[in-house]
Every structure is written in structure tokens, then in C-alpha cells.
Amino acid sequence: MRYHTPQTFEDAARIAAGAAGVTRFLAGGTDVLVQMRSGLVLPDDMIDLKHIPGVRDIARTADGGWRIGVAVSGAELGEHAALKADWPGVVEAMELIGSTQVQGRATLTGNLCNGSPAADSVPGLVAAGAMVTVTGPSGSRDVAVETIPAGPGKTALAPGELISAITLPPRGAHGGDAYLRFIPRTEMDIAVVGCAVNLVLDGDQIASARVALGAVAPTVILVPEAAAAITGTALDAAALEALAGAASAAARPISDKRGTADFRTEVAGVLARRVAEIAYARAKGHAK
């Protein structure tokens, strides 16, 4: 295996584009090293992104959003009070990943690019309307985060392309987001279902919302029908009922050892209600 430590994303893209065999980018390594250990993935070229200047930075963008470097760990994200105040749902989702030791290394970008349908941080990013910067040999472009996952273990990135930053939009006034997952234990497990809700209020009414589900389809999915069910309401009982129905209707899960398709479909609705209530309370300034 050749171990590369490029100093720029353009160089990283060029190395990847020129590599003939199995290539992996190395962020926190908490997926890559496990896959190497099991023999599932034996890279010929390993491109460590952590030597590129700025990859550990969390910075305010000019419009009041946030730019998160591709090597920022879950622990670093959780320690950033201002980011957490703006996007508590995005941060709480990342903080659910693994143990303290895993948090010391795991990144949002790695979680996204590993392509797991159950990736905990991805629904929160999708609900937040995050953008990612994709850098390839011929330049960079910004795309919506939900365009990246393409199926279990797959992304829409072309060979030689990589993500060079994640950008969260400005939080703005009267907004809130939240993420919950269902797992049989209290920590250290993989989501049976995950759900994130992000909403903005106008008085008591929901002016706009985004709802995303994890682990109920081949990729994390954005569910516009679920958002429509609560938009224009004050999240009353009827709206919550409609939200749960829309979330369950959008779920297309498989049955596996973690849960049956029927169970996942039901839990998608239950979680959507609970998460929407937390996001609503946060938008009202009532809860942390």
C-alpha cells in the first residue's frame, strides 16, 4: 500500500485519479481501518487528508453559516459551543457515533462517504440543508449533501473526486433542529431507524421544515411529504399524526437482525413525531 499525505485537495484528487487499484481517503479511519482489518477492503493507495491545511477548522462563513473541515472529529464538533448552539441536531447526531475513542477520530465526511444507510450524522446534515464542496482533478463544485449517498457503501462521487468541506447554512432566527435514533441499547449500536427534523417558525407556525430518515431505505432520504405535513401548522396533534403517517409511508426498509421492515416503518413515524417536538421546542427557545 502506498501512503500519501497530499498538502492540497487538488493534489489528493490527482493522486486518486491516477491510482489504478483500490483507493481510499483517510479521515478518521474508523470505517477504513475496520474494513482493512476484516479484509473487506485492502487499499493499494491510502490518501491521508489530514495534512491539508484547514481540514481541522470550524469557521463561520461570510453569510453566517458554518464551514466544517473534513478532518474535524466528533469530539471537536461537540466541543464547539457556538456551532452546537446553532445546529444542535447536527452535532448531537455526530456525538452518537461510537465510543469516546471513536469520537476522537470519526468525522462527518467519513460518515457520509462510507455510504451506510444507517449513518447517524447524515439525516441531520440533510435536514439542515448542508452543502458539500466536491473537488476533482478539474476543479470544485458545491452540491447538496443528499446527492452524495448512492446506495449501501456507494457515493455519487466520481473516481478522483473527494469532498473538501461541508457547509451548514446560516441558522437564522426562530429555527431548531434535532436527531434521534432507535437502538436496542443506550449507546454503541447501529441505528435501526434514525430521523432528523429542521424547522423555522413564524410565531407559533412552522414556516418551513425539512425531515430526513436514516436506515429505512438504501440511502438516507429527504421526505418532503413529511415536511409538508407540518408546514403551516403549530405542530398540533393532527399535524403530528400526519407527520408520523408521512414518515412511515416514505419508509422502504428491509428486515434484518436489527428489526423487521414493519417495525422500522412504525418506528419511523414514532421518531418523526418525537424529533419534530424537540426541534419545535428548540426553535421556541424552550429546550437545549
Partner: peptide, 12 residues
Amino acid sequence: RLVSSCLVLGVE
């Protein structure tokens, strides 16, 4: 920073 050394490459 606390990490699992089995998930870090020696070269890192």
C-alpha cells in the same frame, strides 16, 4: 486525544 490505537495507522 483519546483514540483506539487499533484504528490508527502507525504512519499517522
